[in-house]
Amino acid sequence: MPVDAPVLTARKAGLVACTQCAGVWNVGQAKCPRCGAALESRDIHSLSRVWAWWFVGLLCYIPANLFPMLNTTFMMKTSGDTIVGGAVTLISHGAIPVALVILIASVAIPASKFVAVAYLALSVQFRWKTDHLKRMQLYEFVEFIGRWSMIDVFVVAVLSALVQLSVVVSIAPGPAAVTFAMSVVFTMLSARSFDSRLIWDSLDPQPDEDSLT
């Protein structure tokens, strides 16, 4: 079946689908009788929630990169390590694969997630006709990968609990740990607020317009 061929959707059939249990009900049903989830043919507030979480996430991501994630006290001297700084230290110690894990999880994934979610939201807002399937796959990828950014917070937790050798060396979490964790949570909420059914709506004529734009 060609991907862009018109498909009978629940909305066109005068029905409303539950995104939780895939059940289908008559329009006007407010709550899914099967699983109790709120029913909405298209979540019209979806995009405002996406953008709200997106901006808060971005606001938290900036200090997360400027302030230290870790404060290492080595022989009475304290030095702070930012996310990128920590990865650079790892590279200088020759642990390049681990540095890559950190750089991918804490820099590449969050940064590309901001771009991807913004692109998806804009593409729906302006009814762009770019490949629907590719956008859908991008969305599923963003949802799948986003949670892995949390890894750096766990690294900080383990390091600061473990490395406590009195005067010799001790590690404590830095202020960026909080803002980074918040940024990950907010971008996850942003991606989860997105109603992916909106991607496919530009295949159908707009309800209040006569022709396709």
């Binding site: 498909v7 009978l8 959707t9 629940a10 909305r11 059939a13 029905l15 689908a17 539950c18 995104t19 939780q20 895939a22 059940g23 289908v24 859908m136 599923e140 992916s196 059914r197 991607i199 496919w200």
Partner: peptide, 9 residues
């Protein structure tokens, strides 16, 4: 059933 991702019936 309707696809939760794209609403196809």
């Amino acid at each position: 059933i309707a696809c939760p991702s794209c609403d196809a019936l």
